[in-house]
């Protein structure tokens, strides 16, 4: 069991942060499962600090205009569009 075991309010809070609407039944289910899963993740406390050697390099290219999807193709999967734009819900 995690020392910071999540309760139902914590599940709802994370649901809000992640923008996922949850049914009450899902909150109950996740509350129990998260305790198990996070308890298992607590085993990472035993892992020492390890210096990671990155073998990554930056990949650059000239910032030049290139062909892309046309407007119709880009809008094709959208539920709602207006005058060639995506239409979204109001922001506040």
């Amino acid at each position: 069991m995690s020392e910071d075991a999540v309760d139902a309010d914590a599940v709802r809070h994370v649901g809000d942060l992640a923008r996922v609407a949850l049914e009450e039944s899902e909150v109950e289910l996740f509350e129990a499962q998260f305790a198990d899963i996070l308890g298992y993740f607590d085993s990472l406390d035993e892992v020492p600090e390890v210096e990671a050697e990155s073998d990554l390099v930056n990949v650059m290219r000239p910032d030049e205009r290139r062909p892309s999807l046309d407007q119709d193709e880009a809008l094709d999967n959208a539920g709602e569009t207006e005058d060639g734009y995506f239409k979204g819900p109001r922001v506040s």
């Binding site: 999540v6 599940v11 994370v14 992640a18 923008r19 996922v20 609407a21 998260f34 993740f41 819900p89």
Partner: peptide
């Protein structure tokens, strides 16, 4: 598009299945 962006966004994501919601929530938590 009832309500604001956040509400609409959260409702759209009800289409995810249970395992996807579980992982998105746990990842957000972590």
């Amino acid at each position: 598009y009832e309500g604001d962006w956040n509400e609409s966004f959260a409702r759209a994501r009800e289409a995810f299945g249970e395992e996807v919601k579980r992982r998105v929530l746990l990842g957000t938590y972590a």
